[in-house]
């Protein structure tokens, strides 16, 4: 057996690590690149603002865009306040006891439940039992429960990064705990909470399985009137046109993927950049 000298084996090892890392990152860029290249020719004003035509082989995707936006808006409006309050409980009030351990374990497990199981749950509870039917609200509630652990975890990190001394300074003035949280802790945790929220919005915009049987419709050529309407949704639409419809014009599929990707990646990038920016100019 040949023994390499340590310096050389280090160089080889580091080179391999670098190659592997590139191997993971490059496909990400390739995926984005391919979709942009093949899809941008489909992006016209009519495509973004029109109704689908010819069994979805033509026309636009407006109802899918509006559907996704409505579901996601409702979901984040439900999950953000609940998640932030839960994070406040865990970070500011919870004692180190059995209850807290069970809560934390529940959060971990909630985060691990497969998205399609959330779909089943949403179907059973919101669509059937509560009789919301397949609707924006049923989908939004399902997604909001799915996203709850993510919001709780990121908000908690944000709260935790606010120095404990800020709380003491406020409490020592006779300010109550809640007032301290509302006026000192939350404002300083806000950038972190918001980046977490934006990342969550990005994530749920692209989720398909949870809305499959709770909100999404194959084809609804009109815009929703209320939260109890069934809607088209971008990710579901992409699934349908890429698997279920024969002779689909290629550029429409890519165009739909591009719109979804742009929506999701813009939000993710915003979140990443905001976080970077706030980390740099953090005041304490």
């Amino acid at each position: 057996m040949i023994r390499l000298d340590p310096k050389r084996s280090q160089n080889i090892a580091f080179a391999i690590l670098l190659i592997v890392t590139i191997l993971i990152i490059v496909p990400v860029l390739l995926i984005i690149g391919v979709i942009v290249k093949e899809g941008y020719s489909a992006i016209t004003w009519e495509f973004l603002t029109g109704m689908p035509k010819d069994g979805m082989r033509g026309g636009g995707i407006l109802p899918a865009i509006v559907g996704t936006l409505s579901i996601v808006t409702c979901a984040i409006c439900i999950t953000l306040p609940i998640g932030v309050l839960a994070a406040i409980y865990l970070n500011e009030y919870a004692k180190d006891n059995l209850l807290t351990r069970i809560i934390k374990l529940s959060i971990v497990n909630l985060a691990g439940v497969p998205s399609v199981v959330y779909g089943l749950f949403g179907l059973g509870l919101f669509v059937m039992l509560l009789k919301f039917g397949v609707s924006i609200i049923a989908g939004a509630l399902t997604l909001s429960i799915m996203e709850l652990p993510v919001i709780i975890t990121t908000s908690r990190q944000a709260l935790n990064s606010v120095p404990y001394s800020f709380r003491e300074a406020s409490l020592s003035l006779g300010v109550s705990r809640w007032q301290t949280i509302a006026h000192v802790v939350l404002p300083n945790a806000l950038p972190g909470i918001m980046t977490g929220a934006i990342l969550s919005i990005a994530r749920i915009s692209g989720e398909t399985a949870p809305i499959l049987f709770t909100a999404a419709a194959f084809y609804v050529p009109r815009l929703p009137h209320s939260v109890f309407d069934q809607v088209m949704a971008l990710p579901y639409h992409l699934y349908i046109i890429s698997t279920q419809i024969p002779n689909m014009p290629k550029n429409i599929t890519y165009g739909t993927a591009l719109v979804l990707l742009v929506m999701v990646l813009t939000m993710s990038l915003t979140a990443i950049v905001t976080r970077y920016y706030f980390r740099k100019r953090k005041k304490w």
């Binding site: 995926i31 979709i35 692209g206 579901y236 699934y239 890429s242 999701v264």
Partner: peptide, 26 residues
């Protein structure tokens, strides 16, 4: 490091249906 981490995070953000679609065609 920051760029690589952002790259990994972007991957996490790509919806699974988009990855499925790209997988189908590539």
């Amino acid at each position: 490091k920051d760029i690589l981490k952002s790259g990994v995070e972007l991957l996490a953000a790509i919806p699974s249906v988009v990855i499925g679609f790209i997988g189908m065609v590539t």
